[in-house]
Design a binder for these strands. Structure first.
Length: 517
DNA sequence: AAAAAAT
C-alpha cells in the first residue's frame, strides 16, 4: 500500500536530489510519489490523492524541482518558476522546508537553488528581499502571495508550475476568490498539480475548469477508506464538563507520545490548553488568535518534544507532519468528514500506529451522524457506545459506574457531579448498534494492549485560583472504522491513471518534516 | 457556523 518497487534513482530523479533524499533516509518512494513521477515530469496536469502522511509533498516536490532544474530551454533566472500554495502559514513553513531540503544540492550556475516561503503574519521586508535576490520556487499562503504580487515584488508571470497543496481546502469558498485572482496572474501555459488526501467530487469538477485534462492519480482505490488501518478510532459520548477530565486520563495512557487535541473554536482551544497546563501537562495552544510568533513557537516546541500536548483549531488539522504523534483527540467534533480525516491524519503517519479518540457531546450527535455516515464508520450514535468498548475504556482508564458505563469523573464536589450523572442517557441505549461497537474499536485490530491503571495526575480538584470555568457546549464521541490499503487508479475526467503494481510494504522513507522559519 | 488567509 505504501510503496511500489523502484527507487528514486531508478525513476530518473537527478543525482543531487537523490543524494539529498537518501541522506534523509528516503530511497524508496511512496506509492503516490512513484505514480506521480512520470506524468509530473512530462508536464501533465494532475490531481494526486493519497492518504495522510503518505508522501504527497515529495510527490509533487521532487518532480517540480527536477523539472525546472532540468529545463534547458528556460534556464532559471531568479524569477519564480514554480509556486506552491498552502492553506496555513505553518504548513507553508513546513513545505518550503521540505522542498529546500530536497533541493539543497541543486545549483543554478554559481548560486544555490532557492526555495522561499511567502506568508502573512510576518514582516514584509525579509520576504521582499529574498524575492529580489532571486527565488526559484515559492511556497506561500494566498493572501501574502497576492499582496506581494500586486505590489510588484513577486513576479508570477514566469511560472511554469503551480501546485495547490490541500487542494480541496484551497478551492473551498474561503480561499477560492484569492486562488482565482492568483490564477489570473499566472501564464496560461503552466502545469497545475493538485494534491490532497480528500477530494470531494464537486471540487474535482471545479478544478477541471482551470486545469488542462488532468489525470487523477490515487495511491489507494476509490472505495478504500481515507483513514489508515493502523489508526484505531474510538468515539465516546461525553458531557461538556467531563471532557477535560477524560482527556487528562487519556493523556496518561501507557505508550502515549505526542498528542494533538482539536477543538472547533479558538477560544476553546486556548481554554483547554490552559486547563491541561494547570493540571501539569506540558501543553500549549495553536490557533488564529495568537500572534504568528506564538503560533510558530508552540508548534516548534511540540516538534522538539519540549511539550507533548498541542491543543489546536483546524489551523493544524492539515498537512502538519510531526513524528510520533501517537494520539489525536477530537475535543469537539470537526465541521465535516474532510476535517475528521485530516485531523486524525496527524497520527498514524508513514505506517506507524495511531489512536484517534473523538468525544461527542449531545448537541453534536446529529452532526456526528453525518460524518459517520459519510465515512462509513458505523457508529452514528455515540450515545450507544456509552457502555461499550470496555477494552478501550480500560486502556484509557476512563471511569465507569457500577453498571460498567463510562461515567463522570470522580470529583470532590460530588453534589454537582451526582446531579449530572443522573441525567446521563442510560435510557437511550438501544442495543441495536452495540454489536458494532462491542469490545475493540471499530475497524481496528482485534488485539490491543490492555488497560493501564495510571493514576490521575491530579484528580479533578477545584483549583482555588482558577476562575469558574465557563462551559461551552459541543461534544463528541464514538468509534471509527478500519481501513484498507493498496493502490489503484482513478479515472479523473477524461484521463485516468494506471493503478500501481504490487505495493511493497516498507516503513520509513518518504516525507519529512523540516520547517524553517 | 467555524477557521483560515493581507494589513
Amino acid at each position: 500500500m505504501t510503496h511500489l518497487n523502484k527507487t528514486f534513482a531508478e525513476l530518473g530523479v537527478r543525482d543531487e536530489i537523490v543524494r539529498a533524499l537518501a541522506e534523509d533516509g528516503k530511497v524508496h518512494p511512496f506509492a503516490i510519489q512513484e505514480l506521480t513521477m512520470p506524468l509530473a515530469l512530462a508536464g501533465d496536469d494532475l490531481i494526486g490523492q493519497a492518504r495522510t502522511g503518505m508522501g504527497k509533498t515529495l510527490a509533487f516536490g521532487v518532480p517540480l524541482l527536477q523539472r525546472i532544474a532540468d529545463d534547458t530551454e528556460r534556464p532559471l533566472t531568479g524569477i519564480p518558476r514554480a509556486l506552491v500554495l498552502v492553506p496555513t502559514r505553518e504548513l507553508c513553513l513546513q513545505v518550503s522546508g521540505d522542498l529546500a531540503a530536497a533541493a539543497r544540492y541543486l545549483r543554478v550556475g554559481d548560486r544555490k537553488f532557492t526555495v522561499t516561503s511567502i506568508y502573512g503574519g510576518r514582516p514584509y521586508e525579509p520576504q521582499i528581499e529574498a524575492l529580489q535576490k532571486g527565488v526559484d520556487v515559492g511556497v506561500g499562503t494566498p493572501g501574502r502571495v497576492l499582496d506581494l504580487a500586486q505590489q510588484g515584488h513577486l513576479q508570477l508571470g514566469g511560472l511554469s508550475v503551480l501546485v495547490l497543496d490541500e487542494a480541496d481546502e484551497m478551492l473551498d469558498l474561503g480561499f477560492l476568490p484569492d486562488i482565482e485572482r492568483i490564477l489570473r496572474l499566472i501564464p496560461e501555459r503552466r502545469q497545475a498539480m493538485l494534491f490532497s488526501a480528500t477530494m470531494p467530487d464537486p471540487i474535482i469538477t471545479l478544478a477541471r475548469t482551470f486545469m488542462n485534462k488532468p489525470t487523477h492519480i490515487r495511491a489507494e482505490a476509490p472505495h478504500q477508506s481515507a483513514v489508515h488501518s493502523t489508526t484505531e478510532q474510538y468515539v465516546y459520548r461525553a458531557h461538556a464538563l467531563d471532557k477535560v477530565e477524560m482527556i487528562s486520563r487519556i493523556l496518561q495512557a501507557e505508550g502515549r507520545g505526542a498528542t494533538m487535541i482539536f477543538t472547533r473554536t479558538k477560544r476553546t482551544a486556548q481554554k483547554v490548553a490552559d486547563e491541561l497546563a494547570e493540571r501539569g501537562f506540558k501543553a500549549a495552544a495553536v490557533h488564529g488568535d495568537l500572534g504568528q510568533g506564538a503560533r510558530e513557537k508552540a508548534l516548534q516546541a511540540f516538534r522538539t518534544g519540549e511539550i507533548d500536548v498541542l491543543v489546536a483549531t483546524d489551523v493544524a488539522a492539515r498537512g502538519i507532519d510531526i513524528e510520533d504523534v501517537t494520539h489525536v483527540i477530537n475535543y469537539q467534533i470537526p465541521e465535516d468528514e474532510q476535517s475528521y480525516v485530516h485531523r486524525i491524519g496527524r497520527t498514524g503517519r508513514k505506517g506507524k500506529a495511531g489512536v484517534a479518540v473523538t468525544l461527542v457531546d449531545w448537541d453534536e450527535l446529529t452532526r456526528w451522524a453525518l460524518i459517520d455516515k459519510a465515512l462509513g464508520l458505523g457508529c452514528p450514535d455515540p450515545a450507544e457506545t456509552y457502555s461499550t468498548s470496555p477494552h478501550l475504556y480500560e486502556e484509557l482508564n476512563i471511569p465507569k459506574d457500577a453498571k460498567g458505563r463510562v461515567g463522570p469523573p470522580h470529583r470532590p464536589d460530588a453534589k454537582r457531579v451526582s446531579a449530572r450523572s443522573e441525567e446521563r442517557p442510560t435510557r437511550t441505549r438501544t442495543r441495536v448498534r452495540r454489536r458494532t461497537l462491542r469490545g475493540k474499536p471499530i475497524g481496528s485490530h482485534p488485539e490491543t494492549p490492555a488497560a493501564e491503571q495510571a493514576p490521575t495526575p491530579e484528580s479533578a480538584e477545584e483549583k482555588p485560583g482558577s476562575a469558574p470555568r465557563r462551559r461551552r457546549r459541543r461534544r463528541r464521541t464514538t468509534a471509527g472504522a478500519g481501513t484498507p490499503t493498496a493502490n489503484s487508479t482513478g479515472g479523473g475526467n477524461g484521463s485516468s491513471t494506471p493503478a500501481s503494481g504490487a505495493m511493497a510494504e516498507k516503513a520509513g522513507a518518504a516525507t519529512a518534516a523540516a520547517a524553517g522559519g
